[in-house]
């Protein structure tokens, strides 16, 4: 792979994601104040000790933003990883096995997708107790329906190719066929899809937190911070917009990278590629 072939837009995306990850990893060292410490007046303007001002309880906004990166990225990433693992295993099993298993999985998936994700999440979260791992699992399961659909389509595309048939005729087992013949040829589109799902997870988590159903206070997360500070808007206090902008920026950065990956995938079609 040639570094110079990466367009500027993708570089911006990569830089943004890297910054967010650094914040998430080293939050205790980077943040000037503690995550939950009340250090000043309510809704102090930006500047002075508080670079971005303070929030509705007088906590430092910048510190909470940095800690929030940790929660938001961790939960979104965990949900995406689980949803991918789940979606990929089920979709590849369906695509390679075919027949009844494929029908069963696909029809059930159709059923899950017949309800809008947010509505589904609202209904389920209304019943389940509020735990972080439950939130992650709910997000993962709902998102895995999308992964299943694309994973199955991509795998079927490759599975009907003659080199897969040739491997079958040779007598290769399912594992060899999935991992050696199909998977290497689906990596690029799946990588792009992973990015897309990650961006969606960030937005989805933020939306749930904003609605009061995601991460529970006092832990800082970006969507929840918007909810905490939304009452200030009407007084012209922009504290709610700061975490909102952070969510938007991270999602844009991920999408910039995804956009590049997708273009790359389409221009590699039929080619060798060395990703």
């Amino acid at each position: 792979m040639n570094l110079r072939s990466i367009p500027i837009s993708a570089w911006i995306g990569i830089a943004g994601i890297a910054l967010a990850i650094v914040c998430a990893l080293f939050a205790p060292f980077l943040a000037p104040f503690g995550e939950r410490d009340v250090v000043g007046e309510i809704w102090m303007p930006a500047g002075g000790d508080f670079l971005l001002g303070t929030d509705n309880l007088g906590r430092d906004l910048l510190s909470r933003l940095i800690y929030g990166a940790r929660t938001t990225i961790f939960v979104a990433l965990a949900a995406t990883l689980i949803s991918f693992a789940l979606g990929m295993i089920l979709s590849f099993t369906a695509a390679v096995t075919g027949g009844f298993v494929d029908q069963l999985f696909s029809r059930f998936n159709d059923l899950m997708m017949a309800v809008p994700t947010l509505i589904f999440a609202l209904v389920v979260l209304a019943v389940l107790p509020q735990h972080l791992w439950i939130l992650i699992l709910v997000m993962a399961v709902l998102d895995s329906t999308r992964v299943f659909r694309i994973g199955r389509a991509v795998a079927l595309d490759v599975a009907v190719m003659e080199f897969v048939e040739a491997a079958r005729l040779r007598g290769e087992g399912s594992l060899w066929i999935i991992f050696r013949e199909i998977l290497p040829n689906t990596l690029s589109p799946l990588l792009a899809e992973f990015g897309l799902r990650f961006a969606f997870s960030i937005l989805f988590l933020s939306t749930l937190s904003f609605l009061g159903l995601g991460i529970q206070p006092p832990a800082a997360d970006w969507g929840g911070m918007v909810k905490d500070n939304k009452d200030g808007i009407i007084f012209g206090i922009s504290a709610a917009l700061v975490p909102g902008a952070a969510i938007a920026t991270l999602a844009i950065c991920v999408n910039l990278v995804v956009d590049w990956l997708m273009k790359r995938t389409s221009s590699l079609k039929g080619g060798r590629g060395d990703a």
Binding site: A199, L203, S206, I233, G236, G244, I247, N255
Partner: peptide, 26 residues
């Protein structure tokens, strides 16, 4: 293309509060 890519990434509530801040408050 660039603008629409950015717009897809914006959460609904962020757009909403931006509009409120600008049109209703300011």
């Amino acid at each position: 293309n660039v603008i629409s890519l950015a717009a897809i990434s914006l959460p609904e509530f962020f757009i909403g509060y931006l509009l409120i801040m600008f049109f209703a408050v300011q």
